[in-house]
Amino acid sequence: MPTILINPFDESRREPRLPAPRLDRLAGKKIGLLDISKPGGNFFLDHLERLLKDRFAVAEIVRLTKPTFTKPAPDKVIDSLLQARCDAVIEALAD
């Protein structure tokens, strides 16, 4: 008699999603910078903000911070990002 095993893994099918289209240029765009709140993230994002403004002529920067890096971003943070209607968001950390 053949051995029949029961599959132990998650078998749910996840529909892949297309990534958002890449921006054709950064000049004049509104960019969100999301700090996951690890110590040091602000230094990195401050530098990134300067680069985006000075070198790439980004029009506006929106800065947001997750309350803790140990958990997914709460709805409040996601909603704020949505309301800001950024052209792109960079989520970053530094340790």
């Binding site: 029949i4 095993l5 599959n7 749910s12």
Partner: peptide, 12 residues
């Protein structure tokens, strides 16, 4: 309610 797990038949 989820799906039932798949079965894996092993050769002898």
């Amino acid at each position: 309610q989820g799906s039932r797990a798949s079965l894996i038949e092993l050769a002898d």
